[in-house]
Design a protein around this nucleic acid. Structure first.
Lengths: 218, 218
DNA sequence: CAATTAACTAACATGTTAGTTAGTATCCTC
DNA sequence: GAGGATACTAACTAACATGTTAGTTAATTG
Protein backbone atom coordinates (compact mmCIF):
# COMPACT_ATOMS: atom_id res chain seq x y z
CA UNK A 1 0.00 0.00 0.00
CA UNK A 2 3.04 2.20 0.18
CA UNK A 3 3.02 3.47 -3.39
CA UNK A 4 -0.56 4.45 -4.08
CA UNK A 5 0.13 6.99 -6.80
CA UNK A 6 3.65 6.49 -8.12
CA UNK A 7 3.06 8.95 -10.94
CA UNK A 8 2.51 11.84 -8.55
CA UNK A 9 6.05 11.76 -7.26
CA UNK A 10 8.16 14.63 -8.45
CA UNK A 11 11.17 12.32 -8.40
CA UNK A 12 10.50 8.99 -9.96
CA UNK A 13 13.31 7.00 -11.47
CA UNK A 14 11.14 5.04 -13.91
CA UNK A 15 9.40 8.15 -15.15
CA UNK A 16 12.62 10.04 -15.83
CA UNK A 17 14.23 6.99 -17.39
CA UNK A 18 11.32 6.76 -19.79
CA UNK A 19 11.34 10.50 -20.43
CA UNK A 20 15.00 10.26 -21.38
CA UNK A 21 14.39 7.25 -23.59
CA UNK A 22 11.53 8.99 -25.39
CA UNK A 23 13.50 12.18 -25.89
CA UNK A 24 16.44 10.12 -27.11
CA UNK A 25 14.25 8.32 -29.61
CA UNK A 26 13.27 11.68 -31.04
CA UNK A 27 16.79 13.10 -31.15
CA UNK A 28 18.46 9.94 -32.50
CA UNK A 29 15.65 9.66 -35.04
CA UNK A 30 16.39 13.16 -36.20
CA UNK A 31 20.18 13.13 -36.22
CA UNK A 32 21.47 9.60 -35.74
CA UNK A 33 24.04 8.52 -33.17
CA UNK A 34 26.81 10.91 -34.20
CA UNK A 35 24.65 13.92 -34.96
CA UNK A 36 22.52 13.68 -31.83
CA UNK A 37 23.32 16.10 -29.02
CA UNK A 38 22.90 14.90 -25.45
CA UNK A 39 21.87 18.42 -24.49
CA UNK A 40 18.87 18.20 -26.81
CA UNK A 41 17.90 14.88 -25.27
CA UNK A 42 18.22 16.27 -21.75
CA UNK A 43 16.18 19.31 -22.67
CA UNK A 44 13.52 17.19 -24.30
CA UNK A 45 13.25 15.08 -21.16
CA UNK A 46 13.39 18.08 -18.81
CA UNK A 47 16.42 16.78 -16.96
CA UNK A 48 20.08 17.71 -16.77
CA UNK A 49 22.60 16.04 -19.04
CA UNK A 50 24.11 14.27 -16.05
CA UNK A 51 20.93 12.20 -15.72
CA UNK A 52 21.69 10.54 -19.02
CA UNK A 53 24.90 9.20 -17.58
CA UNK A 54 23.27 8.44 -14.26
CA UNK A 55 20.72 6.15 -15.89
CA UNK A 56 22.27 5.05 -19.18
CA UNK A 57 25.99 5.49 -18.58
CA UNK A 58 26.85 6.89 -21.99
CA UNK A 59 25.38 8.33 -25.14
CA UNK A 60 26.09 5.12 -27.00
CA UNK A 61 24.45 2.89 -24.40
CA UNK A 62 21.41 5.14 -24.44
CA UNK A 63 21.35 4.74 -28.20
CA UNK A 64 21.47 0.98 -27.82
CA UNK A 65 18.57 1.11 -25.38
CA UNK A 66 16.55 3.08 -27.91
CA UNK A 67 17.44 0.64 -30.67
CA UNK A 68 16.46 -2.33 -28.55
CA UNK A 69 13.08 -0.89 -27.73
CA UNK A 70 12.49 -0.10 -31.40
CA UNK A 71 13.43 -3.61 -32.38
CA UNK A 72 11.26 -5.13 -29.68
CA UNK A 73 8.21 -3.36 -31.03
CA UNK A 74 8.92 -4.61 -34.54
CA UNK A 75 9.44 -8.15 -33.27
CA UNK A 76 6.19 -7.96 -31.35
CA UNK A 77 4.25 -7.22 -34.51
CA UNK A 78 5.93 -10.10 -36.27
CA UNK A 79 5.07 -12.49 -33.46
CA UNK A 80 1.47 -11.41 -33.32
CA UNK A 81 0.95 -12.38 -36.94
CA UNK A 82 -0.31 -15.86 -37.54
CA UNK A 83 0.70 -16.36 -41.14
CA UNK A 84 -1.57 -19.34 -41.56
CA UNK A 85 -4.83 -17.88 -40.22
CA UNK A 86 -6.67 -16.62 -43.27
CA UNK A 87 -6.17 -16.22 -47.00
CA UNK A 88 -2.86 -14.77 -48.18
CA UNK A 89 -4.72 -11.77 -49.56
CA UNK A 90 -6.39 -10.99 -46.26
CA UNK A 91 -3.21 -11.66 -44.33
CA UNK A 92 -1.21 -9.34 -46.53
CA UNK A 93 -3.72 -6.55 -46.17
CA UNK A 94 -3.88 -7.10 -42.42
CA UNK A 95 -0.12 -7.04 -42.06
CA UNK A 96 0.29 -3.87 -44.08
CA UNK A 97 -2.38 -2.08 -42.08
CA UNK A 98 -0.81 -3.18 -38.82
CA UNK A 99 2.64 -2.10 -39.93
CA UNK A 100 1.41 1.27 -41.12
CA UNK A 101 -0.61 1.98 -38.03
CA UNK A 102 2.38 1.10 -35.88
CA UNK A 103 4.57 3.45 -37.90
CA UNK A 104 2.13 6.32 -37.64
CA UNK A 105 2.11 5.88 -33.88
CA UNK A 106 5.90 5.86 -33.55
CA UNK A 107 7.20 7.47 -36.73
CA UNK A 108 10.74 7.77 -35.42
CA UNK A 109 11.44 4.09 -35.16
CA UNK A 110 11.79 3.43 -38.89
CA UNK A 111 14.06 6.43 -39.09
CA UNK A 112 16.29 5.15 -36.33
CA UNK A 113 16.56 1.76 -37.98
CA UNK A 114 17.43 3.43 -41.26
CA UNK A 115 20.06 5.63 -39.60
CA UNK A 116 21.51 2.64 -37.87
CA UNK A 117 22.04 0.91 -41.18
CA UNK A 118 23.54 3.93 -42.89
CA UNK A 119 25.73 5.32 -40.12
CA UNK A 120 26.95 2.18 -38.45
CA UNK A 121 26.54 0.03 -41.52
CA UNK A 122 24.13 -2.01 -39.49
CA UNK A 123 26.61 -3.29 -36.97
CA UNK A 124 23.84 -3.31 -34.38
CA UNK A 125 21.06 -3.97 -36.86
CA UNK A 126 21.48 -7.61 -37.64
CA UNK A 127 19.73 -10.69 -38.82
CA UNK A 128 17.17 -10.52 -36.07
CA UNK A 129 15.89 -7.12 -37.18
CA UNK A 130 15.75 -8.17 -40.80
CA UNK A 131 13.97 -11.40 -39.99
CA UNK A 132 11.35 -9.82 -37.78
CA UNK A 133 10.62 -7.19 -40.39
CA UNK A 134 10.59 -9.29 -43.52
CA UNK A 135 9.92 -12.77 -42.17
CA UNK A 136 6.12 -12.68 -41.94
CA UNK A 137 5.84 -10.76 -45.20
CA UNK A 138 7.87 -13.31 -47.11
CA UNK A 139 5.93 -16.20 -45.63
CA UNK A 140 2.62 -14.65 -46.63
CA UNK A 141 3.86 -14.01 -50.14
CA UNK A 142 5.28 -17.50 -50.50
CA UNK A 143 2.00 -19.02 -49.43
CA UNK A 144 0.09 -16.84 -51.90
CA UNK A 145 2.33 -17.94 -54.75
CA UNK A 146 2.11 -21.60 -53.78
CA UNK A 147 -1.66 -21.44 -53.61
CA UNK A 148 -1.75 -19.84 -57.03
CA UNK A 149 -3.43 -16.69 -55.78
CA UNK A 150 -0.39 -14.46 -56.20
CA UNK A 151 1.61 -14.18 -59.41
CA UNK A 152 5.07 -15.67 -59.81
CA UNK A 153 7.55 -13.30 -58.21
CA UNK A 154 10.88 -12.73 -56.50
CA UNK A 155 9.43 -12.91 -53.00
CA UNK A 156 12.26 -11.04 -51.29
CA UNK A 157 12.24 -8.17 -53.77
CA UNK A 158 8.48 -7.81 -53.53
CA UNK A 159 8.66 -7.85 -49.73
CA UNK A 160 11.24 -5.06 -49.87
CA UNK A 161 9.08 -3.04 -52.23
CA UNK A 162 6.08 -3.39 -49.95
CA UNK A 163 8.12 -2.38 -46.95
CA UNK A 164 9.51 0.52 -48.97
CA UNK A 165 6.07 1.96 -49.65
CA UNK A 166 5.22 1.77 -45.95
CA UNK A 167 8.49 3.13 -44.63
CA UNK A 168 9.15 5.86 -47.17
CA UNK A 169 6.01 7.81 -46.43
CA UNK A 170 7.00 8.04 -42.78
CA UNK A 171 10.73 8.66 -43.06
CA UNK A 172 10.33 11.22 -45.84
CA UNK A 173 7.49 13.00 -44.08
CA UNK A 174 9.37 16.27 -43.73
CA UNK A 175 10.02 16.40 -47.44
CA UNK A 176 6.53 15.23 -48.32
CA UNK A 177 4.88 17.95 -46.30
CA UNK A 178 6.06 20.36 -48.97
CA UNK A 179 4.23 18.26 -51.51
CA UNK A 180 0.98 17.87 -49.59
CA UNK A 181 1.35 21.33 -48.06
CA UNK A 182 0.58 20.07 -44.56
CA UNK A 183 1.51 17.45 -41.97
CA UNK A 184 1.31 14.06 -43.64
CA UNK A 185 0.72 12.18 -40.38
CA UNK A 186 -2.73 13.70 -39.80
CA UNK A 187 -5.29 10.87 -39.73
CA UNK A 188 -6.90 12.20 -42.87
CA UNK A 189 -3.78 12.09 -45.01
CA UNK A 190 -2.38 8.99 -43.40
CA UNK A 191 -5.59 7.06 -44.04
CA UNK A 192 -5.48 8.12 -47.67
CA UNK A 193 -1.94 6.80 -47.84
CA UNK A 194 -2.92 3.53 -46.20
CA UNK A 195 -5.75 2.93 -48.67
CA UNK A 196 -3.63 3.72 -51.73
CA UNK A 197 -0.79 1.60 -50.41
CA UNK A 198 -3.04 -1.39 -49.77
CA UNK A 199 -4.61 -1.04 -53.21
CA UNK A 200 -1.27 -0.84 -54.96
CA UNK A 201 0.31 -3.69 -53.04
CA UNK A 202 -2.56 -6.07 -53.59
CA UNK A 203 -2.66 -5.19 -57.28
CA UNK A 204 1.08 -5.71 -57.37
CA UNK A 205 0.99 -9.26 -56.10
CA UNK A 206 -2.35 -10.66 -57.28
CA UNK A 207 -2.70 -12.50 -60.55
CA UNK A 208 -4.63 -10.26 -62.88
CA UNK A 209 -5.14 -9.37 -66.46
CA UNK A 210 -5.17 -5.81 -67.78
CA UNK A 211 -8.57 -4.65 -68.95
CA UNK A 212 -6.89 -2.95 -71.90
CA UNK A 213 -8.18 -5.37 -74.53
CA UNK A 214 -11.67 -6.14 -73.46
CA UNK A 215 -12.12 -9.41 -75.40
CA UNK A 216 -13.77 -11.19 -72.55
CA UNK A 217 -15.06 -8.60 -70.20
CA UNK A 218 -18.71 -8.97 -71.14
CA UNK B 1 48.25 25.97 -76.17
CA UNK B 2 49.46 26.66 -72.69
CA UNK B 3 47.29 24.10 -70.88
CA UNK B 4 47.57 20.97 -72.93
CA UNK B 5 46.94 18.44 -70.19
CA UNK B 6 45.28 20.12 -67.25
CA UNK B 7 44.61 16.82 -65.55
CA UNK B 8 48.30 16.04 -65.22
CA UNK B 9 48.93 18.94 -62.90
CA UNK B 10 49.63 17.92 -59.35
CA UNK B 11 47.92 21.12 -58.17
CA UNK B 12 44.64 21.68 -59.92
CA UNK B 13 41.94 23.74 -58.30
CA UNK B 14 39.02 22.19 -60.17
CA UNK B 15 40.18 18.66 -59.46
CA UNK B 16 40.56 19.21 -55.72
CA UNK B 17 37.30 21.14 -55.53
CA UNK B 18 35.55 18.20 -57.12
CA UNK B 19 37.38 15.70 -54.92
CA UNK B 20 36.19 17.59 -51.86
CA UNK B 21 32.63 17.76 -53.18
CA UNK B 22 32.59 14.03 -53.90
CA UNK B 23 34.03 13.13 -50.52
CA UNK B 24 31.54 15.48 -48.89
CA UNK B 25 28.67 13.82 -50.71
CA UNK B 26 29.75 10.51 -49.25
CA UNK B 27 30.24 11.81 -45.72
CA UNK B 28 27.07 13.92 -45.60
CA UNK B 29 25.16 11.02 -47.10
CA UNK B 30 26.39 8.81 -44.31
CA UNK B 31 26.07 11.13 -41.35
CA UNK B 32 24.10 14.22 -42.35
CA UNK B 33 25.17 17.81 -41.77
CA UNK B 34 25.63 17.58 -38.00
CA UNK B 35 27.14 14.11 -37.86
CA UNK B 36 29.59 14.65 -40.70
CA UNK B 37 33.21 15.27 -39.74
CA UNK B 38 35.29 17.62 -41.87
CA UNK B 39 38.31 15.49 -41.17
CA UNK B 40 36.64 12.52 -42.85
CA UNK B 41 35.83 14.66 -45.86
CA UNK B 42 39.38 15.96 -46.05
CA UNK B 43 40.78 12.46 -45.74
CA UNK B 44 38.41 11.15 -48.40
CA UNK B 45 39.54 13.88 -50.77
CA UNK B 46 43.23 13.50 -49.89
CA UNK B 47 43.60 17.11 -48.85
CA UNK B 48 44.00 18.98 -45.57
CA UNK B 49 40.97 20.31 -43.72
CA UNK B 50 42.03 23.85 -44.47
CA UNK B 51 41.27 23.24 -48.15
CA UNK B 52 37.60 22.85 -47.31
CA UNK B 53 37.56 26.38 -45.99
CA UNK B 54 39.80 27.61 -48.79
CA UNK B 55 37.32 26.45 -51.42
CA UNK B 56 33.96 26.28 -49.67
CA UNK B 57 34.36 28.64 -46.73
CA UNK B 58 32.55 26.50 -44.16
CA UNK B 59 31.18 23.06 -43.49
CA UNK B 60 27.65 24.34 -43.96
CA UNK B 61 28.39 26.04 -47.29
CA UNK B 62 30.03 22.86 -48.50
CA UNK B 63 26.89 21.02 -47.49
CA UNK B 64 24.83 23.48 -49.50
CA UNK B 65 27.05 22.93 -52.52
CA UNK B 66 26.50 19.18 -52.23
CA UNK B 67 22.75 19.66 -51.91
CA UNK B 68 22.64 21.92 -54.93
CA UNK B 69 24.47 19.43 -57.09
CA UNK B 70 22.15 16.66 -55.92
CA UNK B 71 19.13 18.76 -56.69
CA UNK B 72 20.46 19.74 -60.11
CA UNK B 73 20.78 16.10 -61.09
CA UNK B 74 17.19 15.43 -60.05
CA UNK B 75 15.96 18.48 -61.93
CA UNK B 76 17.85 17.37 -65.02
CA UNK B 77 16.01 14.06 -65.09
CA UNK B 78 12.71 15.86 -64.70
CA UNK B 79 13.49 18.21 -67.57
CA UNK B 80 14.59 15.42 -69.87
CA UNK B 81 11.19 13.76 -69.58
CA UNK B 82 8.66 14.71 -72.21
CA UNK B 83 5.47 13.74 -70.44
CA UNK B 84 3.49 13.87 -73.67
CA UNK B 85 5.68 11.71 -75.90
CA UNK B 86 4.25 8.21 -75.68
CA UNK B 87 1.53 6.33 -73.85
CA UNK B 88 1.23 6.90 -70.10
CA UNK B 89 2.17 3.28 -69.51
CA UNK B 90 5.36 3.54 -71.51
CA UNK B 91 6.19 6.90 -70.01
CA UNK B 92 5.76 5.63 -66.47
CA UNK B 93 7.97 2.64 -67.09
CA UNK B 94 10.56 4.83 -68.77
CA UNK B 95 10.57 7.32 -65.91
CA UNK B 96 10.91 4.65 -63.24
CA UNK B 97 13.79 3.00 -65.05
CA UNK B 98 15.55 6.33 -65.49
CA UNK B 99 15.07 7.24 -61.86
CA UNK B 100 16.31 3.87 -60.65
CA UNK B 101 19.34 3.83 -62.90
CA UNK B 102 20.23 7.34 -61.73
CA UNK B 103 19.94 6.24 -58.11
CA UNK B 104 22.11 3.20 -58.59
CA UNK B 105 24.77 5.42 -60.10
CA UNK B 106 24.71 7.95 -57.24
CA UNK B 107 23.12 6.14 -54.33
CA UNK B 108 24.05 8.85 -51.83
CA UNK B 109 21.90 11.59 -53.32
CA UNK B 110 18.55 10.19 -52.14
CA UNK B 111 20.08 9.73 -48.73
CA UNK B 112 21.25 13.33 -48.58
CA UNK B 113 17.83 14.60 -49.59
CA UNK B 114 16.22 12.45 -46.95
CA UNK B 115 18.67 13.64 -44.29
CA UNK B 116 18.04 17.21 -45.30
CA UNK B 117 14.33 16.81 -44.72
CA UNK B 118 14.72 15.05 -41.39
CA UNK B 119 17.56 17.03 -39.86
CA UNK B 120 16.80 20.52 -41.08
CA UNK B 121 13.11 19.87 -41.48
CA UNK B 122 13.61 20.67 -45.12
CA UNK B 123 14.60 24.29 -44.69
CA UNK B 124 16.87 23.98 -47.70
CA UNK B 125 14.77 21.35 -49.44
CA UNK B 126 11.87 23.33 -50.77
CA UNK B 127 9.17 23.43 -53.36
CA UNK B 128 11.65 23.18 -56.20
CA UNK B 129 12.99 19.83 -55.03
CA UNK B 130 9.53 18.41 -54.51
CA UNK B 131 8.31 19.64 -57.86
CA UNK B 132 11.22 18.28 -59.82
CA UNK B 133 10.89 14.90 -58.14
CA UNK B 134 7.14 14.44 -58.23
CA UNK B 135 6.09 16.80 -61.03
CA UNK B 136 6.66 14.52 -64.02
CA UNK B 137 5.32 11.51 -62.16
CA UNK B 138 2.08 13.22 -61.27
CA UNK B 139 1.62 14.50 -64.80
CA UNK B 140 2.06 11.04 -66.25
CA UNK B 141 -0.39 9.57 -63.76
CA UNK B 142 -2.96 12.31 -64.39
CA UNK B 143 -2.77 11.72 -68.11
CA UNK B 144 -3.21 8.00 -67.63
CA UNK B 145 -6.29 8.49 -65.49
CA UNK B 146 -7.77 11.01 -67.92
CA UNK B 147 -7.25 8.68 -70.84
CA UNK B 148 -8.93 5.88 -68.92
CA UNK B 149 -5.85 3.66 -69.02
CA UNK B 150 -5.07 4.01 -65.33
CA UNK B 151 -7.56 3.39 -62.54
CA UNK B 152 -9.07 6.19 -60.49
CA UNK B 153 -6.56 7.19 -57.82
CA UNK B 154 -5.13 9.81 -55.50
CA UNK B 155 -2.39 10.86 -57.89
CA UNK B 156 -0.14 12.43 -55.27
CA UNK B 157 -0.31 9.42 -52.94
CA UNK B 158 0.43 7.02 -55.77
CA UNK B 159 3.34 9.17 -56.92
CA UNK B 160 4.75 9.06 -53.39
CA UNK B 161 4.34 5.28 -53.22
CA UNK B 162 6.13 4.84 -56.51
CA UNK B 163 8.95 7.09 -55.38
CA UNK B 164 9.05 5.19 -52.11
CA UNK B 165 9.69 1.88 -53.81
CA UNK B 166 12.53 3.39 -55.80
CA UNK B 167 14.14 5.33 -52.97
CA UNK B 168 13.79 2.80 -50.16
CA UNK B 169 15.82 0.12 -51.85
CA UNK B 170 18.75 2.51 -52.15
CA UNK B 171 18.60 4.30 -48.81
CA UNK B 172 18.03 1.10 -46.85
CA UNK B 173 20.74 -0.77 -48.73
CA UNK B 174 22.88 -1.33 -45.65
CA UNK B 175 19.99 -2.95 -43.83
CA UNK B 176 18.88 -4.89 -46.89
CA UNK B 177 22.28 -6.44 -47.42
CA UNK B 178 21.57 -8.54 -44.32
CA UNK B 179 18.42 -9.76 -46.04
CA UNK B 180 19.97 -10.53 -49.41
CA UNK B 181 23.26 -11.51 -47.81
CA UNK B 182 25.28 -9.44 -50.24
CA UNK B 183 25.63 -5.96 -51.76
CA UNK B 184 22.24 -4.99 -53.16
CA UNK B 185 23.68 -2.53 -55.69
CA UNK B 186 25.35 -5.22 -57.78
CA UNK B 187 23.87 -5.12 -61.30
CA UNK B 188 22.38 -8.56 -60.82
CA UNK B 189 20.37 -7.71 -57.71
CA UNK B 190 19.61 -4.18 -58.78
CA UNK B 191 18.19 -5.37 -62.09
CA UNK B 192 15.98 -7.83 -60.26
CA UNK B 193 14.75 -4.96 -58.13
CA UNK B 194 14.10 -2.80 -61.16
CA UNK B 195 12.02 -5.47 -62.87
CA UNK B 196 9.94 -6.24 -59.79
CA UNK B 197 9.42 -2.55 -59.11
CA UNK B 198 8.27 -1.87 -62.67
CA UNK B 199 5.92 -4.84 -62.56
CA UNK B 200 4.40 -3.82 -59.25
CA UNK B 201 4.00 -0.18 -60.16
CA UNK B 202 2.34 -0.85 -63.48
CA UNK B 203 0.01 -3.36 -61.87
CA UNK B 204 -0.70 -0.80 -59.18
CA UNK B 205 -1.89 1.89 -61.55
CA UNK B 206 -3.39 0.02 -64.51
CA UNK B 207 -7.06 -0.87 -64.66
CA UNK B 208 -7.33 -4.60 -64.24
CA UNK B 209 -9.51 -7.40 -63.05
CA UNK B 210 -8.34 -10.16 -60.74
CA UNK B 211 -8.17 -13.55 -62.41
CA UNK B 212 -9.46 -15.18 -59.25
CA UNK B 213 -12.65 -16.39 -60.91
CA UNK B 214 -11.56 -17.54 -64.29
CA UNK B 215 -14.90 -17.19 -66.10
CA UNK B 216 -13.40 -15.66 -69.18
CA UNK B 217 -9.76 -16.60 -69.29
CA UNK B 218 -10.13 -19.27 -71.96
C1' DC C 1 64.45 32.76 -65.49
C1' DA C 2 62.98 36.05 -62.10
C1' DA C 3 58.45 37.70 -60.44
C1' DT C 4 53.85 36.88 -59.47
C1' DT C 5 50.03 34.33 -58.44
C1' DA C 6 47.59 30.36 -57.03
C1' DA C 7 47.49 25.93 -54.42
C1' DC C 8 48.49 24.09 -50.44
C1' DT C 9 50.37 22.92 -45.37
C1' DA C 10 51.07 22.93 -40.40
C1' DA C 11 50.36 24.88 -36.22
C1' DC C 12 47.29 27.40 -33.58
C1' DA C 13 43.02 29.57 -31.53
C1' DT C 14 38.27 29.12 -30.35
C1' DG C 15 34.15 27.04 -29.39
C1' DT C 16 31.49 22.74 -28.47
C1' DT C 17 30.48 18.23 -26.52
C1' DA C 18 30.62 14.04 -23.81
C1' DG C 19 31.49 12.69 -19.56
C1' DT C 20 32.77 13.49 -14.23
C1' DT C 21 32.39 14.79 -9.57
C1' DA C 22 31.16 16.69 -5.36
C1' DG C 23 27.48 18.25 -3.15
C1' DT C 24 22.12 19.04 -2.31
C1' DA C 25 17.24 18.00 -2.07
C1' DT C 26 13.65 14.63 -1.67
C1' DC C 27 11.73 10.31 -0.56
C1' DC C 28 11.08 6.22 2.29
C1' DT C 29 11.41 3.37 6.45
C1' DC C 30 11.44 2.57 11.01
C1' DG D 1 11.23 12.87 12.48
C1' DA D 2 16.05 10.92 12.32
C1' DG D 3 18.84 8.43 9.16
C1' DG D 4 19.89 6.28 5.09
C1' DA D 5 19.17 5.73 0.35
C1' DT D 6 17.94 7.48 -3.95
C1' DA D 7 17.10 11.19 -7.34
C1' DC D 8 18.99 15.03 -8.90
C1' DT D 9 21.93 19.60 -9.93
C1' DA D 10 25.67 22.76 -11.04
C1' DA D 11 30.14 23.43 -11.98
C1' DC D 12 33.95 21.50 -13.97
C1' DT D 13 37.37 18.89 -17.17
C1' DA D 14 39.37 16.71 -21.02
C1' DA D 15 38.80 15.64 -25.60
C1' DC D 16 37.42 16.93 -29.92
C1' DA D 17 35.74 19.71 -33.93
C1' DT D 18 35.66 23.78 -36.59
C1' DG D 19 37.73 27.51 -38.37
C1' DT D 20 42.11 30.82 -38.88
C1' DT D 21 46.54 32.42 -40.05
C1' DA D 22 51.17 32.83 -41.32
C1' DG D 23 54.21 30.69 -44.01
C1' DT D 24 55.75 27.19 -48.03
C1' DT D 25 55.83 25.03 -52.49
C1' DA D 26 54.50 24.59 -57.21
C1' DA D 27 52.83 26.48 -61.59
C1' DT D 28 52.48 30.49 -64.95
C1' DT D 29 53.94 34.29 -67.54
C1' DG D 30 56.23 38.30 -69.37
Amino acid sequence: MAKAKPSMKSRDAETTKMAILDAAELEFGKRGLLGARTENIAEGANVTRAMIHYYYDSKEKLYQAVLERALASRIKIAEEMDVYAGTPTNLLEQYIRKLLSDMSRRPNLPLIMLFEGVQNEGRLYRQIAVNSSYGPLRKILERGVQEGIFREMDVTQVAVNIMGMCVFYVVARFNLQHLFERDVLTPELFNAHTEEAVTMMLAGVLKHQPSGNQDCSV
